[in-house]
Structures are given as C-alpha cells and as structure tokens.
C-alpha cells in the first residue's frame, strides 16, 4: 500500500509538468505578456527594461524552462490588481470554495443516493422513469440559470433566504443547492446502473433466499458494492464542482477562488489566474489520487503489491 501510494505520487510529476506547459501557453495566447505589466503610456525603453527584467526577451523554450521551477513551487509572481503575491490571494479564498463545493457534494448525495436506489429497486417502473427524466432535465439546466431561478423563488418572491454574500449557514443554502443539483443527476444515474448490476448477482439472491429482510439485503449487501464505481467518478465530479463553483460563486457573490479567477480574467491579472488554475488542477489531481487509494478500503480484492 505504501509502495503504491509512492508510485501514484511519482505519477503526479508528469501531470504537473503538463500543467505547467498548459499554464505557460495560456499566459501567452493573450499577446505580449509585458503589455500587461507596464503602464499604457510607458516608453519603449521602459517596456524593454521590463521585458529584460522578467526574461521575456529570451527564446520561448528558455522562458519556459526558467519558469517551470517557479510554477511547480507555486510562485506565480505578483498580482497586478492587488499588488501582492498571487498565491496567498488564491489560498485565502480556498476555504470558502471548498466549503461551497463540499456542501454541494452533501446536497448532491442527499438527492442522488435515494433517487438512484429507488430507481434501481423499482427498475422500469413509472417511478424509475420519472426519476430518470428529472435527472436528465437536471443535466440539461445550466446551473447559473438554476441559481437565478432559485434566487427568484426563494429570495425575490418568498424572501426566505439571503441571495448573496456570506454570513451564517443560510447564505450557503442556495449556492450549495444550485451546485449540488448540478452533479446529482450524474451520481444518481451511476448508482442506479451499478445497483441494478449488483442486485442481479448471486450473493444477493442467496441473501434473499436465506430470508434476510429486503432492507438489509439492499443496504448492507448490495449498496456497499454498488458504491465502488460511485467513488471512481469522484475525481471527475470534483473537477465539475470546482468548474461550476466559478459561475455559482459569481451569481451568489460568494467570496471564493472561482469568483477571484473570474474577476482576475476580466482585468487580465495573469498571475492570479495562473495561481488559481494551478490550485484547481492540483485539487482535482489530489482527489483522483485519494480515489485510487480508497479502492483498497472499499474493495479488499484489489491488491496493490502486484
């Protein structure tokens, strides 16, 4: 297990190098990076001085090689807007985003697990079809629009919940619900299909045959195995949650990383955007790593020593 963990950690290195290349390209597609660092009225001499100071006058591959060390160390330079190092600015807002993403995950599981279970147990019944159609509709709705509709209903019409900013738990309800509804369909569909597959297995038939209560068969015997594929897509879902967070944070004025990245893109604050994308990707990579490692806990048949 320790060897496997180390191996997976080593496998992160090429991904991180790939990430640094993507970030390097991203920063240069907007034209001359020096243009964003100097005042618009700067003289050609000043521009040349800044260019030399940042090393932008050297060939591209040299620029990349000299930047890779800093990128991997998480040093992206100073934010033009805040006049302070970019990485701390991003990390400051990380807890808010994680709080939102994890609350959304809880909402999604609260919806998806019962929905997926019911759909699988009553396969092809009207109930199953209703659940399947509702979840397809959930996949089709842009989540920022769902957020706006929730604001319209609970904020403007009913006035039950605050619609923007932070404060107590009530501020979290609408954004977390919006984001959670976004991933619930994928989770419930997956649980439904893996549950259907597991319910057909012989050990489930045996459990029923020996007279176990149906609730015990479903929850204790079947669901445990049905949840394994459920965990595999957690990494993908994390990417989706963080992506969705950018827009949901903007809609609800939630002070997280996503909103910071969006605002930084608007004013071309390259350092902050780089740092933000880097952290987002790193979180997804770590989530994927945890997923791989958690298989061992869920499925003892998987052997890591091979």
């Amino acid at each position: 297990m320790i060897r496997y963990t180390l191996l997976r950690l080593i496998q992160l290195i090429p991904s991180l190098i790939g990430l640094s290349i993507i970030l390097f390209i991203l920063m240069r597609i907007g034209g001359d990076p020096v243009a964003h660092l100097v005042r618009p009225e700067a003289s050609p001499d000043e521009v040349a001085a800044v260019r030399a100071a940042y090393g932008f006058d050297r060939p591209l591959h040299e620029q990349y090689l000299s930047s890779i060390g800093r990128i991997l160390a998480g040093d992206f330079g100073e934010s033009v807007r805040f006049r302070s190092p970019a990485m701390p600015l991003v990390l400051e807002r990380l807890p808010a985003t994680l709080q939102l993403a994890l609350s959304a995950l809880v909402v999604a599981l609260l919806i998806a697990i019962p929905a997926g279970l019911i759909a699988a147990i009553f396969q092809n019944s009207p109930l199953d079809i209703t659940i399947t159609l509702t979840s397809t509709l959930g996949r089709a709705m842009p989540n920022y629009w769902l957020g706006i509709m929730l604001i319209l209903l609970f904020g403007v019409q009913l006035r039950w919940l605050p619609v923007s900013g932070t404060g107590d738990w009530r501020n979290l309800v609408l954004p977390a619900t919006t984001l959670g509804i976004g991933i619930a369909p994928a989770l419930s569909r997956l649980l439904r299909s893996s549950m259907i597959e597991v319910l057909r297995r012989e050990y489930v038939v045996t459990a029923r045959a020996k007279g176990l209560k149906e609730s015990l068969v479903v929850l204790r015997h079947a669901m445990r195995n049905a949840l394994i594929p459920f965990v595999t897509i957690f990494g993908l879902q994390m990417a989706w949650l963080l992506g969705g967070a950018v827009i949901v944070e903007e809609v609800f004025a939630w002070p997280g990383m996503g909103r910071l990245i969006y605002r930084s893109v608007q004013v071309r604050d390259l350092a902050v955007v780089q740092a933000g994308v880097f952290i987002f990707a790193l979180i997804v990579m770590i989530a994927n790593l945890l997923v791989d490692l958690s298989y061992a806990l869920l499925d003892p048949r998987i052997n890591y020593n091979d």
Binding site: L19, A239, G243, V284, N288
Partner: peptide, 24 residues
C-alpha cells in the same frame, strides 16, 4: 495519455474562461 490526464484535471469551464478571457 499524460496530456489527456492533465487536461482532465483542469475544470473545462475554467480553462475556457481563462483562454477566452485572454484571447478576447
């Protein structure tokens, strides 16, 4: 495959947002 893995790790919409923001 490593390239694909890396792209999978960056949320699609964030990459698109940053790229389109910088390209104009």
């Amino acid at each position: 495959s490593r390239l694909v893995d890396t792209f999978m790790a960056i949320p699609f919409i964030i990459l698109a947002l940053a790229a389109v923001g910088f390209l104009g």
